[in-house]
């Protein structure tokens, strides 16, 4: 499974990669450092698109909301499952990203084992099924 993370924080990228290394499911994890890099990555010619995109909201240059807005307008990438991966869980952010078409809202957990469990839950979700029954209650993922 091909997974992409857009996050400006080096530590978070480290936790993210470490977590997937410890998860038994075979995954290919790639990371970009901000929104601009993300859009560049996604618009490369002949790119193999990721199955799931983890998107931080608070990034320099181009934030997660702007990215979400843009990529939902691009035909070739708009069907990628988007997981919002943010420190904050403010009502406004949750509301806005839900309306813009993100699939899951994931608040960055405070400990590593929770992170592992949560990420495992995300990648084992049947996205086809989840998307069709998406509502505000199951939008926020908590383990």
């Amino acid at each position: 499974m091909h997974i992409l993370l857009a996050d400006d924080d080096e530590d978070d990228r480290l936790f993210f990669r470490d977590a997937f290394e410890e998860i038994k499911i075979k995954t290919k994890v790639e990371t970009v450092n901000d929104g601009v890099e993300l859009m560049n990555y996604l618009t490369q010619p002949n790119i193999k698109l990721p199955h799931i995109l983890f998107l931080d909201l608070n990034m320099p240059r181009k934030g997660g909301i702007d990215c979400l807005l843009e990529l939902k307008r691009m035909d070739q990438v708009k069907n990628i499952a988007v997981v919002i991966y943010s420190t904050s869980a403010s009502e406004e952010d949750i509301e806005e990203t839900f309306v813009l078409g993100a699939n899951v809202y994931l608040k960055k957990p405070n400990d590593f084992s929770t992170l592992k469990k949560t990420l495992e839950a995300v990648i084992t979700t049947n996205w086809q099924y989840h998307t069709s029954g998406l509502n505000r209650d199951n939008f926020i993922l908590s383990i």
Binding site: D9, D11, F15, T87, K108, N110, F112
Partner: peptide, 12 residues
């Protein structure tokens, strides 16, 4: 919250 979260994650 962000640095605290990282501290806690490193602790874990």
């Amino acid at each position: 919250q962000e640095p605290l979260r990282k501290i806690q994650t490193f602790i874990s």
